[in-house]
Nucleic acid binder design. Structure first.
Lengths: 177, 177
DNA sequence: CTTGCAACTATGATTATCATAGTGTCTGTT
DNA sequence: AACAGACACTATGATAATCATAGTTGCAAG
């Protein structure tokens, strides 16, 4: 199997058609988000995205086939893998950031705190939603940013991870008191 | 108004989950691309995206329901509508631009011309793929950009429009010599 | 009064996704 | 040695989305 099969818009010059052919669906985007946040394990991707296990497996397979993700064995016996973004995958960061900005501005109740605070790596100032540095007075490149999850969002994520393992234990052994 | 039905990720603080709930699919993104390019008519959206008519109809309905698109009658008798992005829709531009940059850099054969050349509105210089102005020496905000389709891409789009009307005439009246 | 166009809607087949359950391989505990 | 548990999946059958194709409506021009 060669990479980037027929699911990309190969028959057009439009780069957006190409992009959406590879990451034009909810689960792929959410998985990339998680990988950018530093998650590497299958179950964490599943828990934090809310996708079913086949969705995660299928998407990871496709992302790997398209060269966005690499699978590394961190243990044979038992065979365990971690998933990491390739440079091609990491360069989706601007897409994720743009979706973040739009989502914060247009999809969330007014006045709610952003889920992630962004800082200018070189000067430490907190950036506004558009990625502007109030100290340096201009747009900051994504490579010069550092993100920090808000306490509320970190808590939500911990909760999700806990719920996931709970649910697993329950469905594996339903007759526990 | 806090509309946006149940298809957005309403139960999370993550703005990306919210965004992908509204535009986390290929057809929505491609339709937004077309609207940003200035197309307004149903058939043009269909021809240029390659979606089926129900997909266009369904997506426009959803985008309208979510407040990204407005439908204006430009003629009663016969009843005709045009579709336009609302400010909420227009603000997806950075997402589209990020997908463009990524698609040009990672999904197309090396050395191929970008489908669209971007210029700095205030100084006229052509921007690089990352949206940097070589004259002004920094990142340019999307509101200060102007795009111009390459001749090759314009031709591809003309071709697509022509093929579409051809196909329509043929399937409506198949026994023409 | 027929042809044609624009903007859809209807239909039935094919695919994708979902909820749920199960498998295989190891580790750590009893 | 036996067994529970973690992890990374795969299997299955039901439900939902998407596809190709065709049809409808409303009007205008010839």
């Amino acid at each position: 199997m060669g990479n980037s099969k027929d699911h990309d818009g190969d028959d057009t010059l439009c780069p957006i058609a190409h992009s959406t052919g590879l990451v034009g669906d909810r689960w792929s985007i959410l998985i990339v988000r998680e990988l950018l946040l530093g998650q590497t394990r299958f179950q964490d991707l599943q828990a934090q995205t809310g996708a079913t296990s086949q969705m995660v497996a299928a998407r990871l397979k496709r992302l790997e086939g398209d060269g966005l993700v690499e699978r590394h064995a961190y243990s044979r016996r038992p065979p365990r893998h971690e998933y990491r973004l390739t440079p091609k995958g990491v360069h989706l960061m601007p897409v994720i950031l743009a979706l973040r900005t739009w989502g914060e501005r247009w999809c969330k109740p007014e006045g709610e705190q952003p889920a992630t605070r962004m800082f200018h790596r070189t000067c430490g100032s907190e950036l506004d939603l558009d990625g502007r540095c109030p100290a340096c007075g201009g747009l900051v490149a994504w490579t010069d940013m550092r993100g920090q999850p808000s306490e509320a969002w970190a808590e939500e994520r911990r909760q999700r991870a806990a719920d996931f393992t709970d649910h697993r234990r329950v469905s594996a052994n339903p007759n526990t008191e």
